[in-house]
Design a binder for these strands. Structure first.
Lengths: 257, 257
DNA sequence: CGATCTGTTGACGGCAGTCAAGTCAAGTGG
DNA sequence: CCACTTGACTTGACTGCCGTCAACAGATCG
């Protein structure tokens, strides 16, 4: 029965069964569904797989550095990656937090040095540098998707600049929580009632949050406490939280409705 | 004589004379030399010109807004454009300062609203939205160049995040001056001796600088005064300056050598 | 010459940083 | 199994940088 079905449809498209077996774990991967691989046809994906290799990183492990020689292209399939820039005297600023389906791409430019590091246990799909550049020319959708992602990253970075330059400590912490909630619900419809029952991951330690928000870790602690006491959030242990009052959180975060 | 010369060389390349007349002001334009038009051959440029139109803006004039309907693509040929994001209560953060040869591209994304506005008298070269998207597919170098520029913008935004999150008021002001000096000398070799005699433009008013650095305008005034008293900079009027001690400025700005 | 816009300077206060002590959980070794 | 260590987080007391408020100075313009 299954074979017969194959016979019939094989000419112009793959069956669901064949898709799963041929594409293997790609078919379960967020990068395929929401990341750059989403711009590829199944035939293109089979080609693209050849230049990809998977790897896991432990929390704190260095993934990439701005003065590495080879260019780095990868997609995040699970976990959280933070990109950190550093000043000469050691002050740090986290300038990016990459979550599943995001892309990690090294940059040339003569700017402050930076590095990417696993914040949690991370699984990512790395693409060979020469192969990736070749694929960019070969599959026009890929280039297009990468461009859109980069423009999105730029916009997100600029939003974060508003936070860093103009928001108070409480607003900063509220904004971070708000962002994490929004990002984990990108696929499902906006449903603030549902948020109430969900538990979200903070991903970062207190000092990493501080470096992300341009604060000290002590201030982060105090502001989380404030939000707890106001009954806006609830903590489960030290790195999980849920939202009790979504509207209040949005308001403090300074988000437009 | 001139005609004869044309006859001889016309087959495989254009004469300098013809270039200038056919390409018109493009041949004098920074966008041609350092901007996105630099990725085009002369034949492509002649095609590209058709979708471009020039316009000047007066200081303070609104150029583009994030909730405009049509997409906006343009290159800056002279002047300075600032991109500003705003919070609900009116707090502002300048998230980008575009100078000649930079590109101004509107973004979709559901982020904080923003707008682009002429900081000085501005001349820019705008490209029709449908035409530009068509050219992107047609001329692969253009897409490539745009991608590189966007990655560069992203990196610059992240550097600015370090400034906003981790630098002191004095370091912020020093960094701004340092950046302006570097940016006006992109084409010529690094020559700190030469800086001493040059006079640079601040482009922005005090409150705009404040919104760029995440400070108040009073603090900006005080820090400029400090740098003056330390003998690191010299002011000419209120929006021009020169550098007396490049090393000291770099050091305070926290730049790597 | 007044009106307006922009920039400068001073006095004061508060938000968030600094320093320091203490709690808690998880691991380690005797 | 318990003392000890270690790392992550919390809380308190104090300080200082920078924001706020206000007055004033200069420039530009009708």
């Amino acid at each position: 029965m299954l074979n017969a079905d194959n016979q019939v449809r094989q000419d112009h498209s793959l069956t669901d069964y064949n898709r799963t077996t041929m594409l293997g774990r790609c078919s379960m991967c967020v990068i395929r569904h929401r990341g750059i691989c989403g711009s590829l046809t199944e035939e293109e994906l089979l080609e693209f797989r050849k230049i990809a290799s998977r790897r896991t990183y432990e929390p704190g492990e260095r993934i990439m550095c701005s003065d590495d020689q080879t260019k780095f292209f990868a997609g995040i399939s699970s976990g959280a990656v933070k990109i950190t820039k550093i000043l000469v005297d050691g002050r740090q600023q986290v300038v990016g937090l990459l979550l599943p389906s995001d892309s990690l791409i090294s940059n040339f430019g003569n700017s402050n040095p930076y590095f990417a590091e696993a914040a949690t246990k991370v699984e990512l799909c790395r693409y060979s540098d020469v192969g990736f550049i070749r694929m960019l020319d070969q599959f026009s959708g890929l280039k297009q998707r990468l461009m859109e992602q980069t423009l999105g990253d730029l916009d997100a970075a600029r939003d974060w600049m508003v936070l860093l330059g103009r928001k108070t400590a409480e607003e900063k912490v509220a904004s971070l929580l708000h962002m994490l909630v929004m990002r984990s619900n990108v696929h499902r419809p906006e449903d603030s009632a549902e948020h109430r029952q969900m538990i979200f991951e903070l991903h970062l330690k207190r000092d990493e949050i501080a470096d992300f928000l341009g604060l000290t870790l002590e201030t982060v602690c105090r502001q989380i406490k404030t939000l707890r006491k106001k009954g806006i959030i609830q903590m489960f242990g030290v790195r999980r939280f849920s939202i009790l009052d979504t509207d209040a959180l949005s308001e403090i975060a300074g988000e437009y409705k």
